[in-house]
Amino acid sequence: MTLLHHPRRAGVVVTALVSAIAVSACGSTDKDQASSLQDKVTVTGKYAEKPTIKIDTPLTVKKTTAWTTESGKGDEVGADATTILGLTIADGRTGKTAISTHDAGQRPLEVKLGDQVFPSLTNSLVGRSADSRVVVASTSDDAYGTTGAPQLGIKKGDSLVMVADILSTDPTKILDGPTGKSLPAPATAPKLESSDDDLSRLDFSGLAKPKKFAVIPLREGTGPAIENPDRIAADYIGQVWGAKEPFNNTYGKEPAKFSIGLGGVIKAWDQGLAGLKEGARVMLICPPDTAYGKTAQPGIPANSTLVFVIDVLGVG
């Protein structure tokens, strides 16, 4: 059981897109059509920032088509990957930008491709690399269907242009364990106990429970650093301060995958993992206000101080 995730309050962008976009589309890379559409759609601006979209209106899209304006060198997006996007949508009829995750008060969009959310978009992302900018010219049927999206000013039958910056995706190369220089833990930190070379539990004997959040590096790591937001793969053990056994332990199993920097994990993970390098091992001391606070979880009483040891095995 994974206990790290928090229910996320969806912003306007996420709510509008999830509720309105159809679920039966597929993208195309037909060269002739792509060339024709690229002549009518101009996208400018820096990757990972809100683009300027200029459209020769009204834009007629006979088949959903995608192309890349900037090719990254990050991990490749898999068919079932969870991907973090910066997304901007423009109305092909009017040329107006309808909505963007880059706007104030919004956050990047986390999309699991296998769930068939935004198929006219997500099918166009498979096989492309993180750090790329992808433009999707979508038919109305492949986007908002027969209803349009009046809350965004998009009418029935309007084509759409979607500009997706692939900020991160699931790591495709995952380490077997931490790398880099080992670092000494302070005497006040819990001791790590192992079984068959895997971490099995933490020992709190003789230690006073701390009151402050702490990040204790145990291995430096040698790979790329975690940015906000990023997808990561990790092994971890989590234990309530003073408990005899962990409430969660992934060692000896498949590494878990998480999004960091989107508020989907406990505050301590978002704060404590940002900037760590792939291959790092870290201990997080998490008072209640950085974990679950007054809300009890399975195996975690209310107002618990938690301790995690985390191996960052991949950064997407």
Rank of each mutant, 00 (worst) to 15 (best):
P51K: 03
I84M: 02
L59S: 06
T83R: 05
T88E: 01
G72D: 13
V43S: 05
L87P: 09
T42P: 10
Q38E: 07
P58T: 11
V23D: 08
L17Q: 12
A20K: 07
Q38F: 03
A48F: 05
G95Y: 03
T97W: 06
D30T: 06
Q38M: 10
S19L: 14
G95A: 04
K54H: 08
A98M: 12
T65Q: 15
S19R: 12
D91W: 08
K63T: 13
G92S: 11
S19F: 05
S28N: 13
V61P: 11
E49A: 09
T64Q: 14
T44K: 03
D30Y: 04
A104K: 14
E49W: 10
T52F: 01
D103I: 10
D103L: 10
Q106I: 04
T42S: 06
G74F: 11
K54E: 11
T97H: 01
A25Y: 06
A16L: 15
S19T: 11
L87Y: 09
G72K: 12
A22E: 14
G27E: 07
Q33L: 07
T44G: 07
A25H: 11
E76F: 11
A16S: 11
V43E: 00
D32L: 15
V43M: 04
H102S: 01
V43I: 14
D80C: 14
P58M: 09
K50E: 14
T57Q: 00
A81D: 12
T83W: 09
K40E: 01
K63S: 09
K31F: 10
C26Q: 13
L17D: 13
D32G: 07
S28G: 11
A48T: 06
T60D: 14
A16I: 07
I89F: 07
G86Q: 00
I84A: 02
D56I: 01
K54M: 12
T82M: 06
L87W: 07
D32F: 10
G45I: 04
T29I: 12
T94W: 00
T68S: 07
T83C: 10
G86D: 11
I99T: 10
A16E: 12
V23K: 13
I99S: 07
V18M: 08
T83Y: 04
I53D: 09
L85R: 02
T65S: 13
T57S: 00
E76M: 15
T44L: 04
D32V: 09
S28P: 10
K62N: 14
I89M: 15
W67P: 07
A81C: 01
A25E: 11
T44W: 04
S35P: 02
G95V: 00
R107L: 09
E49G: 05
D91R: 11
T83E: 02
E76I: 12
A20F: 09
L85T: 01
V41R: 11
K73T: 15
K96H: 02
G92Y: 04
K40W: 08
I53L: 01
S19W: 08
S24K: 15
C26L: 09
R93S: 01
K54Y: 02
L17S: 04
G45M: 02
A90P: 00
D103M: 08
T52W: 01
A104T: 13
Q33K: 15
K73W: 05
H102Y: 15
V77A: 06
A66C: 14
D91V: 05
E76S: 15
T101Q: 06
W67M: 06
T52I: 07
T101P: 00
W67L: 06
D75Y: 13
T29Q: 13
T97R: 00
V61I: 03
D75S: 14
Q38H: 09
